[in-house]
Deep mutational scan, measured.
Amino acid sequence: VTTYKLVINGKTLKGETTTKAVDAETAEKAFKQYANDNGVDGVWTYDDATKTFTVTE
């Protein structure tokens, strides 16, 4: 299990959150659900070296 980070650069929501997941794909699903629940819809990137997803509106 690895800790992944999400950086949110939204129009109305900015911040960070983390999740523990077995792989990046599982973390991405959780983060996309989180973003959707919070009304954030943007461009996604992922940096494997830092295990960090970024979504920018």
Results as ranks from 00 to 15, higher is better:
residue 20 K to A: 13
residue 9 N to E: 15
residue 33 Q to H: 13
residue 50 T to R: 07
residue 17 T to S: 11
residue 31 F to D: 00
residue 42 G to M: 02
residue 4 Y to K: 00
residue 44 W to P: 00
residue 36 N to I: 14
residue 24 A to H: 11
residue 27 A to S: 02
residue 38 N to F: 13
residue 40 V to I: 13
residue 50 T to H: 07
residue 3 T to E: 12
residue 3 T to W: 06
residue 40 V to C: 04
residue 16 E to W: 08
residue 1 V to A: 09
residue 49 A to P: 08
residue 2 T to M: 10
residue 12 T to N: 15
residue 47 D to N: 08
residue 54 T to L: 06
residue 13 L to F: 14
residue 10 G to Y: 14
residue 40 V to M: 08
residue 31 F to N: 00
residue 18 T to N: 13
residue 21 A to N: 03
residue 20 K to Y: 13
residue 22 V to D: 10
residue 8 I to W: 08
residue 44 W to E: 00
residue 54 T to P: 00
residue 29 K to T: 09
residue 32 K to P: 00
residue 8 I to V: 07
residue 52 T to G: 02
residue 45 T to R: 15
residue 54 T to W: 08
residue 24 A to W: 11
residue 22 V to S: 13
residue 4 Y to L: 01
residue 39 G to P: 02
residue 6 L to H: 01
residue 28 E to L: 13
residue 33 Q to R: 11
residue 53 F to M: 02
residue 21 A to I: 03
residue 26 T to M: 07
residue 14 K to L: 06
residue 31 F to E: 00
residue 50 T to Y: 08
residue 46 Y to I: 02
residue 28 E to S: 06
residue 3 T to N: 07
residue 43 V to I: 06
residue 45 T to D: 12
residue 19 T to W: 06
residue 47 D to Q: 06
residue 56 T to E: 12
residue 13 L to S: 06
residue 14 K to W: 13
residue 57 E to T: 03
residue 37 D to V: 12
residue 54 T to I: 07
residue 40 V to W: 09
residue 24 A to S: 10
residue 40 V to H: 06
residue 48 D to I: 11
residue 55 V to I: 12
residue 25 E to I: 12
residue 28 E to G: 09
residue 54 T to Q: 06
residue 39 G to W: 06
residue 49 A to G: 07
residue 45 T to P: 00
residue 7 V to R: 07
residue 53 F to G: 00
residue 49 A to V: 08
residue 25 E to W: 08
residue 43 V to N: 09
residue 12 T to D: 08
residue 36 N to Q: 12
residue 40 V to T: 04
residue 22 V to H: 11
residue 27 A to D: 01
residue 29 K to R: 14
residue 56 T to F: 07
residue 43 V to G: 07
residue 55 V to H: 01
residue 56 T to A: 11
residue 57 E to L: 04
residue 9 N to M: 13
residue 49 A to W: 08
residue 20 K to T: 10
residue 24 A to C: 05
residue 33 Q to Y: 06
residue 44 W to L: 03
residue 6 L to E: 00
residue 30 A to F: 12
residue 4 Y to F: 10
residue 31 F to W: 02
residue 15 G to W: 15
residue 42 G to C: 02
residue 18 T to W: 15
residue 35 A to P: 01
residue 56 T to W: 09
residue 20 K to R: 13
residue 21 A to F: 08
residue 13 L to Q: 05
residue 13 L to D: 13
residue 26 T to Q: 07
residue 15 G to Q: 11
residue 30 A to D: 05
residue 23 D to F: 06
residue 6 L to V: 03
residue 41 D to Y: 09
residue 11 K to D: 13
residue 5 K to W: 06
residue 31 F to G: 01
residue 46 Y to E: 00
residue 1 V to T: 11
residue 27 A to N: 00
residue 6 L to W: 02
residue 22 V to W: 08
residue 4 Y to S: 00
residue 48 D to H: 12
residue 10 G to F: 14
residue 3 T to Q: 11
residue 37 D to W: 05
residue 6 L to Q: 01
residue 38 N to D: 03
residue 14 K to S: 08
residue 25 E to D: 08
residue 9 N to T: 08
residue 10 G to A: 14
residue 27 A to L: 00
residue 23 D to A: 05
residue 17 T to V: 14
residue 42 G to E: 01
residue 35 A to T: 12
residue 47 D to C: 05
residue 46 Y to W: 04
residue 36 N to H: 14
residue 24 A to N: 07
residue 42 G to L: 02
residue 36 N to R: 12
residue 51 K to H: 11
residue 5 K to A: 05
residue 29 K to A: 12
residue 19 T to N: 05
residue 32 K to H: 10
residue 57 E to H: 04
residue 1 V to Y: 12
residue 47 D to Y: 05
residue 13 L to A: 04
residue 41 D to A: 12
residue 52 T to K: 04
residue 12 T to K: 15
residue 51 K to D: 03
residue 22 V to A: 13
residue 23 D to T: 07
residue 8 I to K: 01
residue 19 T to G: 05
residue 33 Q to S: 11
residue 52 T to E: 04
residue 21 A to E: 05
residue 30 A to T: 06
residue 27 A to V: 02
residue 41 D to T: 11
residue 28 E to W: 14
residue 23 D to E: 06
residue 46 Y to C: 01
residue 8 I to D: 01
residue 21 A to D: 03
residue 44 W to S: 01
residue 28 E to T: 04
